[in-house]
């Protein structure tokens, strides 16, 4: 397992995920992107913040995947 491959692997996954593609890796799981809308967050001290929207990477392990399917 060489560095070149690792580098390529993470670049490919990253690029595909950003393109909103789901990346299924056998034996591991699935990477995908999830968009969280902006939302208001109420703090305990009464402060209210408007949280910016964000895109996050979600990883779903394979075994769980199988159960769902």
């Amino acid at each position: 397992m060489n560095n070149k491959f690792i580098k390529a692997f993470r670049e490919v996954v990253r690029e595909e995920v950003v393109k909103k593609n789901k990346v299924q890796i056998e034996g591991l799981g699935r990477f995908e992107i999830q968009h969280n809308k902006q939302h208001q967050k109420k703090m305990e001290n009464g402060q209210v913040l408007m949280m910016p929207p964000e895109d996050v990477v979600i990883f779903t392990p394979e075994n769980q995947d199988n159960n769902e399917d």
Partner: peptide, 14 residues
């Protein structure tokens, strides 16, 4: 992944 919204900080409403 979050490149669209990077650097966006929460905005205080109250």
């Amino acid at each position: 992944v979050n490149h669209k919204y990077t650097g966006m900080d929460p905005v205080e409403i109250k």
